[in-house]
Write a protein that binds this DNA or RNA. Structure first.
Length: 274
DNA sequence: GCTAAATGTTGAT
DNA sequence: TCAACCTTTAGCT
């Protein structure tokens, strides 16, 4: 599920498997042929995740080359994008395979991304300049997000999804974080008290870090699950996301669903009353 | 086994 | 407001 935690996880895994070594880059589908050719054989120097964006820095043309020419691979998975990873010999390419990375030990296949392109450092800067603070980044400044929220009449449920306000949150974390803090998704941003934002941010950091570790989104507390111990069942993982019509885990009220800005928004009308 | 919807964003209309 | 991206999964039959 590509919300921010997934991308940070990918950045870490790709770094572990590919950084510091030359990599063969190919585009079996052909749609990224020019980019692949430009990167093929270079060394992977670093990987970074900012919100839902993944950037891979490759080696420059030569030692002492103009730093402005250092190439970055920029990937955004969008809704369908997916990495498939493996060891040893990569399988025969099948289907629409946009990008394949291969070194002596590992391979990584990328399908269906909404963005897969080569950027120079300026291009990377333009991508990052459009992003609000990312709860998964230690350098993130939550006050910058609050400044945006606090001067906006837009509903909180909308603001949390805007990547230029906060980056990395998707539809699942949006719904769940609002529930966990008892916030009405329709509350205008400017009515959010600063203390509540502090709490919400701290909770996002905790939840999303757990998401990076486990590779899934679990937001329920043990006392609100059908089983308190052991692995969290899929149907126990969320409070409201995709639980439309089912009883709220805390108060029993039927969970509501509404379409907002083209996305489904789930909330409990009792625990998240205006 | 099939269909619809899904974690997201962009660019065209 | 809608199509595109084009895979995976939930929920049917």
């Amino acid at each position: 599920m590509p919300e921010g935690h997934t991308i940070h996880r990918h950045a870490r895994i790709l770094r572990e498997r590919f950084a510091g070594r030359p990599v063969a880059v190919a585009s079996p589908q052909g749609r990224f042929a020019a980019g692949a050719a430009a990167l093929d054989g270079r060394t992977v120097e670093a990987t970074e995740a900012h919100g839902k964006h993944l950037l891979v820095r490759f080696s420059a043309d030569a030692a002492g080359a103009d730093p402005a020419t250092v190439p970055y691979l920029h990937i955004h998975l969008g809704l369908y994008g997916k990495w498939t990873l493996g060891e040893g010999e990569p399988p025969e390419p099948r289907g629409a395979l946009r990008l394949r990375l291969v070194n002596d030990e590992h391979w990584a296949d990328l399908r269906g991304p909404i963005a897969c392109e080569v950027l120079d450092p300026d291009g990377r800067g333009l991508v990052l300049a459009k992003l609000g603070p990312d709860p998964l980044r230690p350098d993130a400044d939550p006050d910058a997000a609050y400044a945006r929220i606090h001067r906006s009449r837009a509903p909180l449920g909308l603001l949390l999804m805007q990547q230029d306000v906060v980056s990395g949150i998707g539809n699942v974390y949006r719904a769940e974080i609002l529930f966990r803090h008892g916030l009405d998704p329709a509350m205008p941003g400017l009515l959010l008290p600063p203390e509540t934002w502090q709490e919400l941010w701290a909770d996002l950091v905790t939840l999303m870090r757990a998401g990076v570790r486990s590779g899934r989104i679990v937001t329920t507390r043990p006392e609100h699950r059908s089983r308190r111990t052991g692995p969290v069942r899929r149907e126990d993982a969320h409070y409201v996301y995709r639980r439309h019509g089912q009883p709220c885990r805390v108060c029993g009220t039927s969970v509501e669903l509404r379409e907002a800005a083209g996305r489904k928004l789930y909330w409990c009308p009792t625990d998240q009353a205006p």
